[in-house]
Every structure is written in structure tokens, then in C-alpha cells.
């Protein structure tokens, strides 16, 4: 999924970003509350990890602004403030989960997945398409029962297509979901990645992923 980390401590921000990237997520990160709001307005994230004490605009305000503007992206607050009032306030302004520092890394990862699943009410994480099996939770792709090696970016594109089956995903949506905010890929780059993805999942005849020329891609 595409995650935004809002944490003012640069070192924690970087290490969190690295851990989440290792988990196969596409991660943007900012250290300022105002920058977070700007990014959230521009890009549709799947989840936001939000610190409370931030320069510019604090985490409560960021969450409030998001909810006021109708952004439903799940928010996981990650903060050193652990008192009950602070937690309650976090939930009041629209947080979906609240994790107090220092946290357990496996717990953080599990909670991120759980919140994402709960908010998007995803029932099944395993999707079967012809001889292709995709486990969205474990991030594993099986082709004819054999595991296929896939980069996080390609998996992200596949995941977006699967989660939005029947809908056309435009170049912009794909770029927004699977590239970091600083990257800004051209449609050629996306086309090249799609070619790679088709090769990885063995879809040379374009049976699984349909090209809607000039618009984007779709999985039926």
C-alpha cells in the first residue's frame, strides 16, 4: 500500500520508512505537519502514520483537516504522548489506531495491516485469476503454484489493479499509488513497468491486464 509517514524526527522517519519499504510498501515521508496536508491533498494514500508533536501543524490538526475535507484514509497515530486523554483526543479527531513510542516493530506492522483491512473491509486477501494466485497480505504471487519473484513496485501496480477490479486505473492513479511523491514518473515509465509486470506474471497475451489505450489499465 501507499503510506505517508509524518514524523518530525528525521532518524526515526528514515528508519520507519526503510522498515515499511522492506515490508513492500510505497512510502512517502515528511517532517512537517503543513507538508503532510499538502501531500494528502495531492495524493491518495492508503494509510498515514502521524506523529502528534510536529512543527508547522500538529498531528491532531492534520487529522482534523483530513477528516474535514472528507479524506477517509486510515490514520495511525504514532506518538510519545501516551496518556488516556491524549489517546482519546487522537480518536476524537479521527485517528483509527494509536501507538505509543517506543513500539514493537512487528506490532506496528500488524496494526497497520489490520487498520487498512478494517477500513477497507477487505474479506479475502487471496485472489485467484486463472493460474495466478495473489496473496495481498503476505505479498506473495504464485504462478501455476510456483512462487514468482516480484519487486514492491510491480506488486503495488498489481495490487491496485486487483483491488479495483473492473475499473480503469489511469496513469495518474498508478503513478500516485506506486511511485513516491518526489519521483513523478512519465507514462513511458509506467508503460515499461506494466510490460515488466506482464512478463513476471506471464501475461504476454494481455489476457489478465487489459490496456485501455490512452487511458490506463484494467483487470476484469
Amino acid at each position: 500500500m501507499k503510506i505517508l509517514i509524518v514524523e518530525d524526527n528525521k532518524e526515526l522517519n528514515e528508519s520507519l520508512r526503510e522498515i515499511l519499504k522492506m515490508e513492500g510498501h510505497i512510502v512517502d515521508s515528511v517532517t512537517d505537519g503543513r507538508d503532510a496536508v499538502i501531500l494528502i491533498n495531492k495524493i491518495q494514500y492508503d494509510l498515514v502514520i502521524l506523529d502528534i508533536m510536529l512543527p508547522g501543524l500538529d498531528g491532531y490538526s492534520v487529522a482534523k483537516v483530513m477528516r474535514e475535507r472528507g479524506v477517509k484514509t486510515p490514520i495511525v497515530m504514532l506518538t510519545a504522548l501516551g496518556q488516556l486523554e491524549e489517546k482519546l483526543r487522537g480518536f476524537q479527531v479521527g485517528a483509527d489506531d494509536y501507538i505509543v513510542k517506543p513500539f514493537e516493530i512487528p506490532e506496528l506492522i500488524a496494526r497497520i495491516n489490520a487498520v487498512y483491512k478494517r477500513i477497507n473491509s477487505i474479506q479475502s486477501d487471496v485472489i485467484q485469476l486463472e493460474d495466478l494466485t495473489v496473496d495481498l497480505n503476505r505479498r506473495v504471487v504464485l504462478k501455476g503454484g510456483k512462487e514468482v519473484e516480484i519487486t514492491p513496485k510491480l506488486f503495488c501496480i498489481l495490487e491496485q489493479l486487483l483491488r479495483n477490479r473492473g475499473k480503469v486505473l489511469t496513469y495518474e492513479i498508478i503513478a500516485g499509488k506506486c511511485w513516491e511523491a518526489s519521483e513523478n514518473p512519465s507514462s513511458d515509465t509506467i508503460r515499461a513497468n506494466m510490460k515488466l509486470l506482464r512478463r513476471v506474471i506471464g501475461d504476454k497475451e494481455k489476457d489478465i491486464i487489459k490496456t485501455i489505450s490512452g487511458v490506463g489499465y484494467r483487470i476484469e
Binding site: N9, S15, L16, E18, I19, A80, K101, P102
Partner: peptide, 20 residues
Amino acid sequence: SHDIRTPISIIDTNLYLLKV
């Protein structure tokens, strides 16, 4: 305790990364 929460998290996450 509040002030060492973030540094400890940094040590913890980097240790995790180092090990992995």
C-alpha cells in the same frame, strides 16, 4: 521518559534494520 521515547524508538528501529 517522554524525551527518551523517540530516541529509544530510533535505536530500536535501526537495530531491527541492522539485524534484518
